[in-house]
Amino acid sequence: MAPKNEITVEWQEDYSTGIAKLDEQHKTIISYLNEFNALAMSDDKRAISAILIKLLGYTLTHFLDEEISMYAARYTEFEKHRNEHNRFFFELRSLYIKFEGGNNSRLVCAEIASTLKEWFITHISDTDKKYGPFLASLEP
């Protein structure tokens, strides 16, 4: 568990999509965000790199799980939602490249921290919440 500070993101009931498996994945993402934030201002480039790689991999898996459920359920907003995932994932890739390949990792880390927080919280609490009732009605 990362130590709490002013940028710590906390899971709120209000974020719940009603789909337990996906809520759990969102909680894991939030814990990775906090792990990243706790390291972002340090000089431990290796540790930052490791958490970013973990976050990239997990984000992709999570996006796929959501997309599979939405696609299988013929969710009407599937394409829009998937495009949102893709755009963000490609941007996250760009940020990671800048972090590894550039020479001002402090600055990039600050950019990554705000991008992550802003994107995930908005996406989870808005875009993801919308599929909740739709998918829940199909749950076994």
């Binding site: 796929l64 997309e67 599979i68 696609y71 299988a72 760009s94």
Partner: peptide, 22 residues
């Protein structure tokens, strides 16, 4: 070059989704 990679990821993702959705 990065965009070509992105497009490939996009395509493979879609194929995987279709595959998993049967």
């Amino acid at each position: 070059h990065k965009k070509d990679h992105d497009n490939f990821i996009r395509e493979v993702k879609d194929l995987y989704v279709r595959f998993k959705a049967g």
